[in-house]
């Protein structure tokens, strides 16, 4: 009866794979269809003729999707740099330095994770408006350019796992806190740093609510908002939307293919096995 079990397992796995992949296949198919075909024929029909029209409209038309991609990449770069720098320093302080109220402070900081992001939108918006940063690049990135509680938490847990002996040895050699962080802790923590980087890139790439609130028009909107803006009052423009999602997913796919090993390992690290 072993083969029936194998068959069953594969059947379940294949169904799961099909359910997961079907939306992507459908969106890529739609991206290569003419709007006429999309309106006239079944949405499951194969693109005929295959057209690059949608991508052309996106990149050269009034949508300025190319600009949105550049903005998204710049924002991701800045956020990754900022979050890594500040989260690593904060995590080190929380993990290895001794000062009164350290743990209490950490738990208070961590508890901000429990506050739904949507609650913060209005205060953040008012702050940015006061600073005159509405509809600017800095308004888009500043609220998230510093440490995030989640990244700090992940890093702290990992840093705590590094043997104290190593730190003590470095101390004996005359290293100060910064030396220990840069030369002992960070080199030993590459896997978790890769994880934090990936989490930051992906969450930034997909963030929608804040950019939608803080930006107006084409000037500073990232790809998520640009994609949503493709739909007009009387027209869904689905072929354009799907071309946009196809373009948006390509960089992430490339990232995944390059860093496959690290990603799988990072999932193991964060415990979502």
């Amino acid at each position: 009866m072993k083969w029936t079990r194998t068959l069953l397992v594969y059947l379940v796995l294949l169904t799961g794979a099909a359910l997961t992949l079907a939306p992507f296949v459908l969106s890529v198919m739609t991206a290569f269809k003419t709007p006429e075909q999309f309106a006239r024929r079944s949405s499951l029909s194969w693109p005929d003729p295959v057209t690059l029209e949608n991508f052309g409209v996106l990149l050269t038309g009034r949508t300025e999707f190319g600009r949105a991609i550049v903005i998204t990449v710049l924002a991701a770069l800045l956020l990754v740099a900022g979050q890594l720098l500040f989260s690593i320093m904060a995590a080190y302080a929380f993990a290895r330095m001794r000062f009164p109220g350290r743990d209490a402070l950490f738990w208070v900081y961590l508890s901000t994770l429990m506050i739904p992001a949507i609650v913060l939108v209005i205060p953040l918006y008012l702050m940015m408006a006061q600073l005159g940063l509405r509809n600017t690049f800095w308004g888009l990135v500043l609220p998230f350019a510093f440490a995030s509680p989640y990244a700090t938490f992940l890093l702290r847990e990992y840093f705590r796992g590094i043997p104290q002996d190593l730190v003590d040895a470095a101390r004996l050699d005359g290293a100060n806190a910064l030396d220990v962080l840069v030369e002992v802790v960070v080199p030993l923590s590459r896997p978790i740093i890769a994880t934090v980087t990936l989490i930051t890139v992906v969450s930034q790439w997909n963030s929608f609510l804040w950019p939608r609130v803080i930006t107006t028009g084409n000037d500073w909107r990232p790809i998520t908002v640009a994609t949503a803006s493709l739909q007009s009052q009387y027209n869904g423009n689905w072929t354009l939307v799907m071309a946009a999602t196809t373009l948006a997913v390509v960089p992430l796919l490339a990232l995944f293919l390059v860093f496959q090993k690290q990603i799988v390992r990072s999932i193991a690290i964060t415990g979502f096995k």
Binding site: R62, Y125, R212, T216, G217, N218, D219, A228, S229, L230, Q231, S232, Q233
Partner: peptide, 15 residues
């Protein structure tokens, strides 16, 4: 500037 229909009225109100 084009602000899409879906956002237009909320944006206009805050702006």
């Amino acid at each position: 500037t084009v602000v899409p229909w879906a956002d237009y009225w909320t944006k206009l109100r805050t702006d």
